[in-house]
Amino acid sequence: MTSILKKFPLNRKQWALMKVLISVSVIIIVILGGLFLDEGRIVTNLTNRNSPPSIDNLFGTDWLGRDMFTRTVMGLTLSIGVGLIGAIGSAFIALILGMAAATMGRTADRIISWLIDLFLSVPHLVTLILIAFTLGGGFKGIVIGLTLTHWPTLARLIRAEVMQIRSADFVQVSQRMGKPRWWIAVHHILPHIVPQFLIGFMLLFPHVILHEAAVTFIGLGLSPHEPAIGIILSESMKYLSSGMWWLAFFPGLCLLMIVRMFDSIGDNLRLLTDPNGNRD
């Protein structure tokens, strides 16, 4: 390890940037793969059933002779897509509620804080299943469910941050200089919120993807015709006992990797945007 570090004398911020770039490129490759891989590889091919991983079929094939590598990549793309919509929706709910709680007076703050506490006191997964089930499952149900359940932690964070900055001396000075409220919001408060928001958004992502997979896995999420990771995993469970480990192993591992990538993007962005992080 030390010899590598000597060859590439990067400081911590440069490392962080590297990690972000690597993670982003892996995710982009997966998405492009999902869009452009040959769909012919996932049609039923009964002559090549249940084969273990090989050069031709990197992740092996399943009981219908479909290439698991292609299925996994497509499943991941779908999961990332669902995750993206869910995370964007959740993050915006969090932003709006967080800002409203911090700026719209005591009553608004009380109601929103109560709502946050309510959602936090029940595990995500339970509310998510409930909402998805009520809406009849499927793509729409799961996306709305994800959006409505993942905002509370980020909302709380944003509320606290806005409140702190609002009472900061430099904001009060700005008010005395006759700066209107919107100006202060844009120039003083937003620059502090944006990094927090982006990081929070990035960290929501893996959460959303995992929960999507989990709900789909138990059959309340996406329909079995869609090649989602959750579906692949739940189908593969049946074949695990017959020794076909690759059916669940590779998709599971890839899901884990993608989730870690988003985590790492979030963490490293935090390091890069910290204004006081000028130390090593």
Partner: peptide, 22 residues
């Protein structure tokens, strides 16, 4: 309440009266 205040104050600790991201 609005507009430039004719009474301006300078505080003891400048680091608090300055936006660290500016």
């Amino acid at each position: 309440k609005k507009g430039y205040h004719p009474v301006q104050m300078v505080l003891q600790h400048p680091e608090k009266a300055i936006n660290p991201r500016w």
